[in-house]
Amino acid sequence: MPKVAIRFTLNGSEAAEFVESGTTLLGALRDKLGETSVKGGCLQGTCGACSVIIDGALKLSCLTLAESCQDARIETVAALARGGLLHPLQRAFVETFATQCGFCTSGMLMAAKALLDHNATPSREDVIEAISGNICRCTGYEPIIQAILAASRAATSTAA
């Protein structure tokens, strides 16, 4: 299999690698670039565990080819905390106990971030819609819904 060069911005820094043509972004991130904050669940687009944000849009990295991401801006959950401080969404997840085994958490946080980036004051229905491509088998979703609503309230009250 011929190798192709991939180059993109990963969490603000340049990342470049040679991968086999057809490698998924998930595979490139985890196995080539050591970015294991991204989780692989189903590897076929049904669980949302692998969600990342590409050029501002929420994407499933298991269904995205690495070579289609040339010069893209890719964000993973590892970019959320800054200077040792948790992102408001992460804090809300901790405070509302929105994570148990944690396997879905990276993807849930990215889905939540993509929502809040586009809609700072989502309704409960908006939140449900935003995470409905992400499977969680532990929490019963309610704490996750509560966490996202709490983070959006916290952000809008500090902005006001």
């Binding site: 189903c42 076929q44 049904t46 669980c47 939140v127 449900i128 819609e129 995470i131 409905s132 499977i135 088998r137 019963g140 979703y141 309610e142 996750i144 819904i145």
Partner: peptide, 15 residues
């Protein structure tokens, strides 16, 4: 397990 049906976030009742 992908095809093992469980309720999604929209099915969660008031608990």
């Amino acid at each position: 397990f992908n095809m093992y049906l469980m309720p999604g976030p929209g099915d969660v009742p008031r608990i």
